[in-house]
Simulated scan of single mutants.
Amino acid sequence: MLTGHNDVVNNQSRPVARRHHTVPRFYLQGFSEAGKIATVRLPGDQRFPQSVGDAAVAKDFYAVDGHPDGPDVIEKALSEIEGLAAAVFKKIAGGSWPLGHEDRMTLGYFVALQATRVPVQRNTMDYLAAQMLRLQIGASGKTGLRKQLEEHGLEVSDDIVEEVWEQMTRPQGPPVKRPKTVHIEQMLDLSGKLIPYLVGRPWSLVRFERRSLILSDAPVGLVAHTNDKWGMGVGFMTAWGITFPLSRKAGLLMNSVEPQIELGVPVEKVHQGRADWVQDGTAKMEKFFNFHTVQGASEWLFHHPDDEKYVPTDLPNPRPVTLQMSGGPPEFDGEQWFTGGDTKDASTG
Rank of each mutant, 00 (worst) to 15 (best):
P43G: 04
Y310N: 05
L323E: 12
R146L: 04
K193Q: 12
R207P: 01
Y62S: 04
G231Q: 02
F26S: 08
S347H: 01
T39N: 09
H5I: 09
G53A: 14
Q29F: 01
G200E: 13
Q167N: 10
Q12K: 12
W165I: 06
I160V: 13
L190W: 03
E268S: 15
T181V: 14
V278Q: 10
A85W: 04
L252G: 05
Q336D: 10
T322C: 12
E151S: 14
H101Y: 13
T143K: 13
S32R: 05
A130C: 05
T322E: 15
I195W: 00
Q136P: 00
T39P: 04
M105H: 14
N317M: 09
P171A: 11
W97V: 07
D60C: 03
L253P: 02
Q260V: 06
M237K: 15
A93S: 14
V52D: 10
V23F: 05
P24T: 00
S191I: 04
P68R: 03
R207D: 09
G281C: 04
Q121E: 15
G173S: 02
T116Q: 14
F31G: 08
E166F: 10
E82V: 02
G327H: 02
N317E: 15
L113C: 12
Q46C: 09
P98F: 07
T116C: 15
S157R: 05
E151F: 01
H67P: 01
V257A: 11
K229V: 13
Q114W: 01
L252I: 07
G100M: 04
K284R: 13
I261R: 14
L246I: 10
D217E: 09
W300I: 01
L145P: 01
G264N: 07
A129Q: 07
Q324F: 11
E82C: 08
K177F: 06
I74Q: 03
R274G: 10
R319D: 09
A139W: 02
T169S: 07
H225V: 04
K91Y: 06
E308W: 03
M232H: 12
P266W: 07
V199L: 05
A86K: 08
G296L: 01
L78V: 11
S140C: 05
F110R: 08
D333R: 06
P202L: 08
G334H: 06
R207L: 12
M325D: 03
P266M: 02
